[in-house]
Structures are given as structure tokens and as C-alpha cells.
Design a protein around this nucleic acid. Structure first.
Lengths: 219, 219
DNA sequence: CTTTAATGACTGACTAGTCAGTTATTAAAG
DNA sequence: CTTTAATAACTGACTAGTCAGTCATTAAAG
């Protein structure tokens, strides 16, 4: 065994840098699958390829690990949402469709979709985390949606619907699908094609929002 | 101890008849609030006003209790759904609106709404129960919805939308609200007015389904 | 290059506490 | 007295969290 590789350490067992993320990833998967209380720390450690003791080198407690899982998973979600905000508001219907499509592709269809289920399940057991999640993720995301729809209404392209809950109504079927895939989908046959589902949803709500003048009927 | 009270036993401690339901009610409330694994049998028994030992007189195990909670809660749901089927199909739009309203009032807004959350959370841990619930509740309910919508399409009142997931899309926002009220609603301010929410949903999807000829625009 | 010392990531056996499930006992009802 | 609903103390399995020790790696010394 001569000289060490110049730059990259080849296959080490020590991964101080990577460990926390490996652990939170493993924890997320298991928390989503089995729930917080039913997941043992030994399992999480094993899935991450370390021992339970190692887990405690990076996280003070099971609860601290849970919080880290949420916070770490949520930061990309916020960033993804804010990135979408950067788009122009020139064409509200197209922007709404794009927003819903992107939400599914970048959030619902990724590990973040599992966080939706996890938070719904555990909100009651972790009120502080739930409040954080509500304020930093849900309310922010809904505000983006509301802006798009309000613009559409202001420009006379969308009907003057009740705007109090229209944002929630837009996203609910997508969240529902994300949750479904982490619950019943794992044990029941009834398979859903996400693409077709999202497309059908967008078709439905766009036609529900558009005024009779703006919509191009296909009936 | 002379003669007993003529008709009603006044205040007994023994309630063989009523116990099972009292226990499943208590269990449902706690399972929904905290999740299955995080709920202790002592708590359930205490909430039902008995000791843990008594619980074992009526249910063999925690899992058996869980199954009883679901089965007992689900029977009324099936019956309520089937009752709605009995209605005529004369006016699909009105029937769809009635169905969604009734679902919220009779299911989402009752203890059954909690079962939605519970099953979503625990489906992975109880695959057999999930399959039972899927077949006996979800699929049956969706079939009813699909019938209504298909009739509307056949009669030219609804657009010829993709019917594969339209049933799920109709009910998803209501299930979402039911789950929300048993999760984030318990710890986050953001209050939702169910009536207005359901009404806004019906308005949106009816306008999304109706053809341009049939819909009366309010824009 | 080889040896020695130091480091710290990692381990797994252990402790303390929790909780599902059991059972010996009590007491009410017939 | 017998039967049965109910209890409360008990047990054993399981798991969150701890800690004394291991070992791969690095760096200094010879």
C-alpha cells in the first residue's frame, strides 16, 4: 500500500461530514413508513450503517433527531417555493398550472412528500415543530398560490371565487396523493398514475377558475 | 337488600353491554390524537373509566382493539354512503353537490373524520386493515361518486373529463380538511371555516365540470 | 521507511424506565 | 355458594439513552 490518493480519500469508515445527513435520511424514510413512535433508533442507525451510539454523537435525543429531519427536509422546500416565486406573473393560468406541476415534481414526488404525511401524523405530538412547519412552509407556500390566483382574478381571467381557501383547495389533492403514496399505496393494489392525476386536477381547477370567456371548451 | 328498582338499574359499576363501545370510542379519540404506537392502553382504559385489566375482558390485544375501532367506525360510514346511493340520479350537478356536502356533514365532520387520519397514518403498520378499509370504504365510496359524475357526462351536462381519478379529486380536499382538523388545527392558529371551505370546493369543481352551455357564470 | 503516540469516530453491552399483557383477588349479583 | 365484572399489583419484553473501550487514521519521532 504505497502513497495515499492525492485528493480524495478512497473508502473510509469515518464520515463525520456526511453522517448527519445519512442519519436524517434514514430517519425520514422510517418515520414516514412506520411513524415516529414505532420507529426504533437501532433501526435508523442500522439503515444508516452505523451503531446506535454513533447516532448520539450527532443528535441529543430521538426528538432532536425528529426536529432535524423536519428542518433539514423543509429548507429545500422553502427554497424551491421561493424559486418559483421568481417567475413572472404574465400568464396566471399557465403559471398556476406550472406551480402545481412543479409542486408535484419537486416536492410531492420527492422525499419531501413523505414529510407531508409525517407532519400530519405527528403534528399533535410535536406542536412546536408543527407551528414551525405551518409558518415556514405551509403558509408561505399558500401565499404564493394566492398571489397567482388573485392576479388572475384581478385581470379578469379567473372568476371572482371565494379566495379564502382557494389556495388550500388547489394544493389539497396533490398533498392527498403524496400522503396516499406513503400509506395505502404501499399495501393496496389500486395504483395511481401521478402524471395523469395531476394533469386531471389542473384541467379541473383551471376550468373551474376560468371565466366562460377565457376558457376554451373541449366538450 | 330488598327489592330492586323496578325498571332501571340506578348506578351500577358493571356495564357489560356498553363497555366495548365505550372503549372503542376512547381508543379512537386517543389513536387519532396521538397515533397508535404512542397511545398507552392505560390511557384508553382511564378515558373509558375502567382499569386496563377490564379492557382485556373485551379485547384480546391492542391490535384487536385497533381493528375493532376501525371496523366499528367504518360500518356507519358504509351505511351512510349506501343510503346516499338510494337517491335519484335526476340532477347530477345537484346530486354531486349534495354528496360532497353530506360527506362532510356525516363523515368528515364526525368521529369518522378521525379515522381517515388514523388510517393514513397507520396503513403501513396494519396492511390487512388498510386493505379492508380500502375495499370496503374507499373504493365503494369512490364508485358512488364516479357513478354520479359519469351520469353527468353521459347526459352532456359535465365535460368529458378524464374519469380515472375524478372521484378522488372530488373527495381529496374534504379528506384533507378532515385530516387537517385532527393534526395542525389542534396546534396552529390558522382556523378554517368548514362550511365556507366545502362550499368553495363545490363551487370550484362544479364550474370545472360543467360545460360552457350548462354553467351559469357569475363573473 | 518504520515505530510510536495521539486522536476521535465508532461500537455494543449495559442501565433505567416504559408498557403490553397476566393473574390473584375483591365484590357485586343471582 | 357460585358466577362474573372489575381491579390493581405484577411480570417480562422491549427500547431510549449512556459509557467504557476499540480501532482506523494521522502525525510526529527515530
Amino acid at each position: 500500500m504505497p502513497s495515499r490518493p492525492p485528493s480524495a480519500p478512497p473508502s473510509r469508515q469515518r464520515r463525520k461530514e456526511a453522517r448527519p445527513q445519512e442519519l436524517t435520511e434514514a430517519a425520514l424514510a422510517l418515520f414516514v413508513e412506520k411513524g415516529y413512535a414505532a420507529t426504533r433508533l437501532d433501526e435508523i442507525a442500522a439503515r444508516a450503517g452505523v451503531s446506535k451510539g454513533t447516532l448520539y454523537l450527532y443528535f441529543d435525543s430521538k426528538e432532536a433527531l425528529f426536529k432535524a429531519v423536519i428542518r433539514e427536509g423543509v429548507i429545500p422546500a422553502i427554497e424551491a417555493g421561493e424559486a418559483m416565486l421568481a417567475e413572472q406573473l404574465d400568464d396566471p393560468p399557465a403559471l398556476l398550472a406550472a406551480f402545481l406541476n412543479c409542486w408535484w415534481e419537486d416536492i410531492g414526488n420527492t422525499a419531501l412528500g413523505g414529510i407531508s404525511k409525517l407532519m400530519m401524523s405527528e403534528a399533535g405530538n410535536f406542536p412546536e415543530v408543527a407551528r414551525y412547519y405551518d409558518e415556514e412552509v405551509i403558509q408561505r407556500g399558500l401565499a404564493l398560490l394566492r398571489t397567482v390566483i388573485q392576479t388572475g382574478i384581478d385581470r379578469g381571467m379567473f372568476r371572482a371565487v371565494d379566495t379564502r381557501y382557494i389556495d388550500t383547495l388547489m394544493i389539497a389533492p396533490l398533498v392527498h396523493l403524496a400522503i396516499w403514496r406513503h400509506s395505502f399505496a404501499t399495501c393496496c393494489s389500486h395504483i395511481i398514475d401521478p402524471r395523469a392525476y395531476v394533469e386531471a386536477h389542473i384541467d379541473l381547477v383551471l376550468n373551474g377558475l376560468l371565466t366562460s370567456e377565457t376558457r376554451k371548451d373541449n366538450a
